[in-house]
């Protein structure tokens, strides 16, 4: 691992300044949250910052109610605390479920909300510095297309990159239209999800719309009363402590057997947490039946372009959407 300077930020302004400054020899600075992904990537040689700016002592560890009945979640809130929070569990069950579906107890105690959004793909080529990877070394190529891509994207990918975003938590956040609060060298701004993460296009090295020095300070979850009827369902290769093959976050607003409104997002299928807007619009005003759910899922997945070894994800995603929506209809 490359030696790095360690700076502990005491306020946002100094954190951003330290990150922008980097090092005299041009090596970049990065923010350190829980470190569960970053420290591992540094050990693997995937990331080699010259300065580590520790932001875990910044006052971003609170969850506050917003005026409209939503939640403002500090970027430094640990995953465990997010999942255990009474309002998260009561108002947004799918959000709490997604967090406890991810990683392990120890990792959730370390990992932060901001870091969870910013974790890197677990594509094996990205993590192996002996292999080409357009995300790690732009222009070096992508061996995944003809190699190991069983766990990679089936929708929205590009010639340059077929990586998936690994976060569980980001999936319900995309469904909820959460807003990412950012402090940067030029001031503060807010970016709604979807829209925070990027499709790979021809610049897969950029996972998000963040610019150098930008610091995620909070994630705001808007009020959504019908999200009390919501669920996160994750399919993985073993029962626990594994990334999603496919996952679904869904919320249903039902009236007299009809879908008045709904929110659906998919994980494990794209470079971003995939908001299923086509399925949502197909379902609004339709009967809450298995046939309607299957039709809506099929419309969403009509645009998929799977590779030979991950084509199974398309019917899997369709079935998981249908089953999750049916579970929500049957829920008390």
């Amino acid at each position: 691992m490359r030696p790095f300077a360690y700076e502990r930020a005491t306020d946002v302004r100094s954190a951003v300044a330290a990150c922008v400054a980097g090092t005299a020899d041009g090596a970049g600075a990065v923010y350190l949250g829980g470190g569960t992904n970053l420290v591992d990537l540094m050990r693997l040689g995937v990331v080699s910052p010259g300065v580590l700016v520790d932001i875990t002592r910044l006052p971003f560890d609170e969850i506050e109610e917003t005026a409209g009945g939503g939640l403002l979640i500090g970027a430094g809130v640990r995953n465990s605390d997010l999942a255990a929070h009474p309002l998260v569990r009561r108002r947004y069950p799918m959000l709490a479920q997604s967090v406890v579906a991810g990683a392990s107890g120890q990792i959730r105690n370390m990992a932060t909300v901001g870091g969870n959004l910013l974790q890197r793909t677990r594509c094996s080529y990205f993590q192996d510095v002996s292999k080409p990877c357009n995300k790690r070394v732009p222009g070096s190529g992508c061996p995944a297309r003809k190699g190991d891509h069983r766990n990679l994207a089936v929708i929205g990918q590009s010639e340059a990159c077929v990586a998936t975003h690994p976060s569980d938590m980001a999936v319900p956040l995309a469904a909820l239209g959460a807003v990412v609060h950012i402090a940067g060298p030029g001031g503060s701004r807010q970016v709604p999800m979807p829209g925070f993460h990027r499709l790979p296009g021809d610049a897969p090295e950029r996972d998000t719309v963040l610019e150098p020095g930008d610091l995620v300070t909070a994630v705001e979850v808007p009020p959504l009363p019908f999200a009390t009827r919501s669920r996160y369902r994750k399919v993985r290769d073993r029962a626990s402590f594994a990334f999603a093959v496919v996952s679904v976050a869904a919320a249903l607003d039902l009236e007299d057997g009809m879908v008045r409104d709904c929110r659906i997002a998919l994980g494990g299928v794209a470079h971003i947490p995939w908001r299923a807007e086509r399925a949502e619009s197909a379902l609004r005003g339709s009967p809450a039946t298995e046939a309607a759910f299957a039709q809506a899922a099929a419309e969403e997945l009509a645009g998929t372009t799977p590779l030979p070894h991950n084509a199974f994800k398309v019917p899997l995603a369709r079935n998981v959407v249908v089953r999750t929506l049916l579970d929500l209809v049957e829920a008390p």
Binding site: Y6, L32, G35, T36, V39, D40, L52, D54, T56, S80, G105, Q106, I107, N109, M110
Partner: peptide, 12 residues
């Protein structure tokens, strides 16, 4: 709280 000491930098 339980954590992984292999992913925890001592300086933090």
């Amino acid at each position: 709280r339980r954590v992984k000491s292999c992913l925890t930098l001592t300086v933090t």
